[in-house]
Design a protein around this nucleic acid. Structure first.
Lengths: 126, 126, 126, 126
DNA sequence: GTGGTCTAGACCACG
DNA sequence: GTGGTCTAGACCACC
């Protein structure tokens, strides 16, 4: 289970980590009740501050995707409620689509990008 | 031509304004060479500081979407270069799709959302 | 004698006009005591506000390059003192050279640009 | 590593700062991945407002010369794209050369100034 | 009238 | 500690 971060990515580190873990859950690579690696471990692997990973885990817990148990690490929550508001998601989606249109892409080109990314995301076990 | 901002939106104000204007351009409601409302005007309409709007306009100019002429206001640029990197856009797209999957949506439901938003964006004169 | 302005040029209009006239004088196309076209005329030709041209002429007069005679128009001054400080000029030159270096040009490429521009400027009567 | 600003310089402060840093990069005094001093530090050194320096850094980032990471400062970018248009640079160069001619300098004197400035700029480690 | 620059000071986000 | 955002208000440059 590999988490990647990218210095050229403009998202803050903690969000890159959180987003990577979300993708693992979405793809089914991390299933319900699966244990996440410890904060310390991830921090060491990525060479970043432990606080950064702790912040990522806190965000995931706030969204209801993982459960952090005192002393025994974090596990994927049983029912993903995903507290991220659908409003936010649709807003972001609109922004993305606007960027694609302004980049000069035609409708069918945009549709191709969308389904290619969706396919890539869902090609996992799910 | 109405610009909306939302206090519940977590993007900074200046970016909400910039994104709204991008959408207007993408939809064709603001065409090439069309004049944008003045910084003071928008600031008064939205009840925010002039500097906030000036920042939004500066960002749009830096991306090549508008041209600002000192004493005479801003207009939509003739050829949109759109400096926003496609990498960033695809990264954001992946995040959005992940959110939709985590919200429990099935593949066909997600496809429905995508095409509905795309249709809404392109239903303009374009 | 043609003065050109360019909407894509980021210098203010009045400075574009002033710079064009300076170039005409430098090239010898406008010699000592030659009459400049009237403010009204230039404004009409270029389709801009008379104030803009008046500002340009005022700048040229302040630099000692032209003499504005009440009621009888402007003429090129007899001895060009050119009040523009050499400091400013050298500062601008340094900025230009820095841009060329940062654009990745090698020393000999930069030298080629410099002498090509200099030749173009001096190919006039001078 | 010293940044100088000059009240007699007609460029805005933030651009003087940005231009000074560009020159440091061009000369090789600031190499790839080198850390820039913090916004607060530079502001304190120069006795100007933090926002002024932040504006300079934002401009440098927009031109692709530096990368700003939120909690950890700014570094020189790995590959300089230098978004400044070559058109603008050549226009400025023409203006500079015109000034030199109007200052009464002969062709060979101008060539001497040009190569002296170019040598000064490139005498670094580069 | 338009936008540009700068200040002082507040509060937030990131590591 | 770092930079980011926003405000209020001043003064300047351009048309």
């Amino acid at each position: 289970m590999r988490i990647r971060i990218d210095a050229d990515d403009r998202r803050p580190l903690y969000r890159q980590v959180a987003d990577e873990i979300k993708a693992l859950i979405a793809r089914g690579e991390l299933r319900e009740h699966a244990a996440l690696p410890s904060v310390r471990q991830v921090a060491a692997d990525l060479g970043v501050n432990m606080n950064t990973i702790a912040t990522a885990y806190r965000e995931l817990e706030a969204e209801g995707l993982i459960t952090v148990k005192h002393g025994s690490g974090a596990v994927v929550a049983s029912r993903q409620s995903n507290a991220t508001s659908l409003d936010d998601t649709r807003r972001t989606l609109r922004t993305v689509l606007t960027q694609l249109v302004l980049a000069g892409m035609k409708r069918n080109e945009i549709e191709a990008v969308l389904s290619s990314e969706l396919r890539a995301l869902l090609k996992g076990v799910r």
